[in-house]
């Protein structure tokens, strides 16, 4: 009801106005993630950026993807990123903040070239846009697709997650036989002890 009233009041551009508001919130968030001096603050800005992208999914009527985005990205992945930031010592980027050195200029022109290529490709293509169909249960459709046509990739995704978690634990596990000073020597020591046994 209120939605219809607002649509009439803004001459049918209500969705566009909300889209531009979300976009104008999300660009400073993204710039803050990339360029902020305090890196823990950029880690927290990542949560806000994923929240705005979740709102974008809600505008696109993809409710299931939006909630999965909130659960996986805005809670899970940013939590892991913030914990990794707390475990490392990030005091190196604030030294050369304002200097326009070579890597910054080359990165700027690279990203500009990528954006220009993508923009001309988007603009020159005429997409076969279909009229919008309301009343489709997206969760039902996605579930049917995952169980019929895409069941093998779904199983492979679960296998990938399992192997990635086991590999992450194996990599991050603190190996006590390898010390910081001389890992080669300790390997030799291990070899000697094993041969004595």
């Amino acid at each position: 009801m209120t939605f219809d009233l607002l649509t009439n009041y803004t001459n049918g551009h209500f969705i566009d106005i909300i889209f531009y508001i979300i976009a104008f919130i999300s660009f400073p968030m993204a710039i803050g993630v990339i360029m902020d001096k305090v890196i823990i603050r950029s880690g927290f800005m990542l949560i806000g950026l994923f929240g705005t992208i979740c709102a974008m999914f809600l505008l696109l009527q993809a409710q299931f993807i939006a909630l999965a985005q909130l659960m996986i990205y805005a809670v899970g992945i940013t939590l892991v990123v913030v914990i990794a930031l707390m475990l490392t010592s990030p005091k190196l980027e604030s030294l050369n903040e304002l200097d326009l050195d070579d890597s910054k200029i080359s990165g700027f022109f690279l990203s500009l070239a990528v954006f220009f290529t993508l923009f001309t490709a988007i603009k020159s293509e005429s997409w076969p846009v279909r009229p919008e169909i309301s009343g489709i249960d997206s969760v039902k459709v996605i579930g049917a697709q995952l169980m019929t046509g895409y069941s093998i990739p779904f199983e492979f995704a679960s296998l990938l997650l399992l192997s990635a978690l086991i590999g992450a634990i194996m990599i991050a596990k603190h190996n006590q036989s390898v010390t910081k000073k001389s890992p080669v020597q300790t390997n030799e020591d291990n070899l000697i002890t094993s041969s004595k046994k």
Partner: peptide, 8 residues
């Protein structure tokens, strides 16, 4: 735009 910010 978000993709090119990520590349930067």
């Amino acid at each position: 735009v978000l993709f090119s910010i990520g590349i930067y």
